[in-house]
């Protein structure tokens, strides 16, 4: 099957990716502006990355880039790896995942539960170090690297499912806010929403992980994912770890949403955007994963300094 005739949305459904609930954050939204959030922790392995993993595998199979039985390798701070580990089981491919050594214990347990081989990269190099190691393994061993940071299917997954799901449920969207990791959610959903509402503002929530990264020798060692186009954004907000954790507690304890720290960051930024919009506006965000994946970190009790050494997304 060629890429042009591949029905990506149908492939995602066939592999169990669901249309997630879009909930309104009535206890958090400011007066006069609605904030809605996609509940991605309800996906099969508990994160938004089930969409991305399924799209990348479907595209690789359709293009012939992933021959039957070939070993997959991917760099991930956890969620993409877990989603791919499940897909690898369903499609009969062995799978090696490279993760920074400070990811939570739950993530390692889930990866090994699905039979993935786990390779650790140095904690102080963060996701950047994991990417470099995965690239080297793919080159040296001839394994198939799907490379979520470069793979257009990461963006397309959101352009054909997450985005259209939002469009079908809401009459208007004035701003879309999501965490910036690979850029896939922002680029893909942004594309789908702009097709319908050209004036929609697309705003990135910048996670605070960079503050603790020590492994870079120069700023030029930093990594900008090739699929991420900064010109496709209308703004980018830096979210402090303390603010992300405070909002996480509000999401759990006032909205009853069992979500992880990146959801706290996304909603903190969504609220900042909402506070600047006129009455009647609608803001949409994405809750990328669930709380249970972080229980070993006692994330609901930590202050920002204690949580600073963890890879929380």
């Amino acid at each position: 099957m060629s890429t042009s005739t591949l029905d990506l949305a149908a492939s995602l459904r066939a592999w169990g990716v669901i249309r997630t609930p879009l909930v309104r954050l009535r206890e958090i939204e400011p007066s006069g502006v609605a904030i809605y959030a996609k509940c991605e922790w309800q996906q099969p392995t508990g994160s938004v990355k089930d969409r991305v993993a399924a799209a990348m595998v479907a595209r690789a199979v359709a293009d012939g880039a992933l021959p039957p039985g070939a070993r997959l390798v991917e760099a991930s701070s956890g969620n993409t790896g877990i989603a791919l580990a499940r897909l690898a089981v369903m499609t009969g491919h062995p799978f090696t995942v490279v993760v920074p050594e400070n990811v939570t214990a739950e993530r390692i347990q889930l990866l090994t539960a699905f039979g993935a081989e786990v390779v650790f990269s140095p904690a102080e190099e963060g996701s950047n170090g994991a990417v470099r190691l995965a690239e080297r393994l793919a080159a040296d061993e001839g394994w198939v690297l799907l490379h979520q940071y470069e793979n257009p299917a990461n963006v397309d997954a959101h352009a054909v499912t997450t985005g259209p799901e939002i469009v079908e449920e809401l009459e208007r969207v004035d701003a879309f806010v999501a965490c910036l990791g690979t850029g896939g959610t922002l680029m893909g959903v942004g594309r789908a929403l702009r097709d319908v509402w050209p004036e929609v503002r697309v705003v990135a929530a910048e996670p605070p992980v960079g503050e603790t990264i020590a492994g870079l020798r120069t700023l030029a060692d930093g990594y900008v994912p090739p699929i991420f186009d900064p010109t496709a954004l209308d703004g980018r907000l830096l979210v402090r770890l303390g603010d992300a954790l405070a909002m996480l507690r509000r999401l759990v304890r006032t909205e009853g949403l069992p979500v992880g720290p990146s959801s706290g960051a996304a909603v903190h930024a969504a609220l900042r955007v909402a506070e600047r919009l006129p009455a009647g506006s609608v803001v949409v965000t994405v809750l990328p994963d669930g709380l249970e994946r972080y229980l070993s970190t006692r994330v609901l009790e930590l202050d920002a300094e204690e949580a600073g050494g963890l890879t929380l997304w």
């Binding site: 910036l180 990594y223 900008v224 830096l238 979210v239």
Partner: peptide, 29 residues
């Protein structure tokens, strides 16, 4: 907390009590 690329870049005015944060580009996911 705002990326200056989406303000006025290097021409963005700075108040006396402003805080400027420089961060490397770091991927996540």
């Amino acid at each position: 907390d705002e990326d200056i690329r989406y303000l006025d870049g290097l021409d963005t005015p700075v108040d006396d009590d402003a805080e400027i944060t420089i961060l490397p580009a770091v991927a996540g996911g």
